[in-house]
Design a protein around this nucleic acid. Structure first.
Length: 206
DNA sequence: GCTGACTTGTCAATTACCTCA
DNA sequence: GGTGAGGTAATTGACAAGTCA
């Protein structure tokens, strides 16, 4: 049996008739505390997870247990409470992570679609025949107007296409749209959601 | 005031036992 | 009826803080 030492046997002997959980265990159930004892212990634990010596004595007296048993019960209860809390924290963090991950994936798709759009637009602008169909006139006029409005930016701020050299340069680059809109500085931001700074940055989209 | 022995309480890990499917 | 898994009371060993001579 488990309660080898006299103190423990005494403790058992002192216990009031505990209400066994079923008839089967009526004779053998010497270890588990009764439902009533557990109920009181739980209610005390709810208000204080640690017992002062005086309170421990009082609870032990009320329940007909040894103070040592009450102390051990609180010790085990704190351990269970802690592991449960860790599990809850884990679930919360996982939910947050999953949420961010899906957000990250949708932003990645959005980014790809925007890059595609820019490529198409750049190809359109880079093709002289297409340009001659009328759209170039509009673009150049618009660029002039913007250059006047924001002299510091200059005409380069308007997609950067002003000369034939610009168009050649455009053809040589893999992703012309990114070059003109300086996407490079953002590109790596989307590669990994791992750093806290990036979490914060992504959070601004929420 | 400093120090070492002792006590007390806590925690993590583990054991021993019970209950139930 | 035997068995394994899960739950829980209790033990063990390490550590920290308090007390006292």
């Amino acid at each position: 049996m488990h309660f080898q030492n006299p103190m423990m046997d005494e403790a058992i002997a002192e216990q009031p008739s505990q209400t066994p959980r079923n008839k089967k265990s009526e004779m053998k159930n010497k270890r588990r505390f009764s439902d009533e004892q557990i109920r009181l212990l739980e209610s005390v634990f709810e208000s204080e997870t640690r017992l002062e010596p005086r309170k421990k004595m009082q609870v032990a007296r009320e329940l007909g247990l040894q103070p040592r048993q009450v102390a051990i019960w609180f010790q085990n209860r704190r351990a269970r409470w802690k592991s449960k809390r860790i599990e809850q924290d884990y679930n919360t963090l996982k939910a947050d992570y999953d949420n961010l991950e899906s957000r990250f994936e949708s932003l990645k798709k959005e980014k790809q679609s925007l890059i595609l759009q820019m490529q198409k637009l750049s190809e359109l602008l880079a093709d002289p025949q297409e340009m001659n169909k009328g759209s170039s006139e509009y673009v150049d006029t618009k660029c002039e107007a913007e250059a006047e409005a924001q002299p510091s930016r200059g005409p380069a701020g308007c997609l950067g296409i002003r000369t034939e050299n610009d168009r050649d340069r455009l053809k040589q680059t893999g992703q012309p749209g990114e070059e003109f809109l300086m996407m490079d500085e953002y590109r790596n931001e989307f590669e990994s959601p791992a750093s806290p700074e990036k979490f914060y940055w992504l959070g601004s989209f929420m």
